[in-house]
Nucleic acid binder design. Structure first.
Length: 331
DNA sequence: AACTGATGCAACCGCTTTTCT
DNA sequence: TAGAAAAGCGGTTGCATCAGT
């Protein structure tokens, strides 16, 4: 740690980039590629650290950047993705070609959070805020400080309660998840909340992301959730609810009919999967998807009611989902 | 016109993860 | 396999600009 304090150790420039610096970096990277970032500033004749150059390239100079304001479709997509992925900005950005994680993060913090609150939706949990807490319409700027205070206090309350109940969990999970208060946002159940009973919305959402479509199940980082499993056993003992005997409820509505296992397995490995373990999980997921598709109408109905129970249960107890025996069996 | 607070964006910081030797 | 270096990530900060008083 503390290894990259090169900027001030070497009296390197900080702060805003000048057009000259931009030009130097742009010329160098387009001509030679970036290679090892730490050597770029020297080769390009810049008084910056490699990290700063990398950031400047990624966030500003890259030729494939879109720039300009976000379209309503993009904003919607970000909201949907945030409900699933939480504050994993880089993963969200991967679904929006030409947009950077920094840009999306800024948009979220400055604009989308506010919009959601105005609609009575908690930007952290993506659940409806009860009227009493919501306080109706946003009355303008003066309300902002009150909102902020409320947000801060709710975060404080959250952290207070988690201190006692989840201290051990947090020690492990926050480390693995790279997450803080948005921890809940990382569960697939969030996606189910958004589209509890319809394929069509998911399909729309899917098609909105120009380029590569996002597959909820195949791209959800199971390694992340699995890392939690060892810490959730205690929570599991507090519930006597068990999910259906198959694990299909985990995947309901997550595959369109065209997402046959063949289709998926023949495509390029999705982003976020960089190991054979993850890919084998992907193929497991495909099998479950296949099972769902092949069910008869009666079976579907029965399954659907079972699933509804699960849905409501796990909606409010996502931790117990992870701790369920079926979830373990699936791994 | 001057002041003040809000806003948006770019960049930095500290940390984790991945890659290399 | 361990340690170092590089890359990547998310939270935070600083600052220019805007809007209201």
């Amino acid at each position: 740690m503390g290894r990259h304090s090169s900027c001030y150790m070497q009296k390197l420039r900080k702060g805003l980039w000048s057009p000259e610096e931009d030009e130097k970096l742009l010329m160098h990277v387009t001509k030679y590629g970036h290679g090892c970032w730490s050597s770029v500033p020297k080769q390009a004749g810049l008084q910056r650290c490699g990290k700063s150059c990398r950031l400047r390239w990624i966030n500003y100079l890259r030729p494939d950047l879109k720039r300009g304001t976000f379209s309503p479709e993009e904003e919607n997509l970000i909201i949907q993705l945030h409900a699933v992925l939480g504050n994993r900005w880089s993963q969200i950005a991967a679904q929006l070609p030409g947009r950077t994680d920094n840009e999306i993060k800024n948009l979220w913090n400055s604009c989308l959070k506010k919009k959601l609150r105005q609609k009575g939706i908690d930007p952290v949990t993506h659940k409806k805020i009860p009227e009493a807490e919501n306080g109706g319409e946003d009355n303008g700027m003066r309300k902002r400080s009150q909102e902020k205070a409320a947000e801060d206090s709710s975060l404080m309350m959250k952290s207070e309660s988690s201190k006692s109940d989840d201290a051990e969990q947090n020690r492990t999970s926050s480390k693995n998840l790279h997450q803080n208060s948005d921890f809940m946002g990382g569960f697939p159940i969030q996606m189910m909340m958004t589209y509890p009973s319809s394929h069509s919305n998911y399909a729309n959402w899917n098609s909105q992301s120009s380029g590569r479509p996002f597959h909820m199940n195949t791209e959800f980082p199971f390694n992340t959730t699995s890392s939690l499993l060892t810490t959730t056993t205690a929570t599991a003992t507090t519930t006597n609810f068990l999910p259906p005997t198959d694990s299909s409820f985990l995947y309901k509505n997550s595959f369109s009919s065209s997402d046959s296992p063949e289709n998926i397995s023949n495509t390029t490995p999705p982003y976020g999967f960089n190991s054979s373990t993850e890919l084998s999980r992907l193929s497991d997921t495909c099998k479950v998807g296949e099972y769902k598709i092949q069910m008869s109408t009666e079976e579907e109905e029965e399954e659907s009611s079972k699933w509804d129970d699960c849905y409501h249960h796990y909606l409010y107890n996502p931790i117990s989902l992870l701790a369920s025996s079926e979830f373990f069996a699936m791994k």
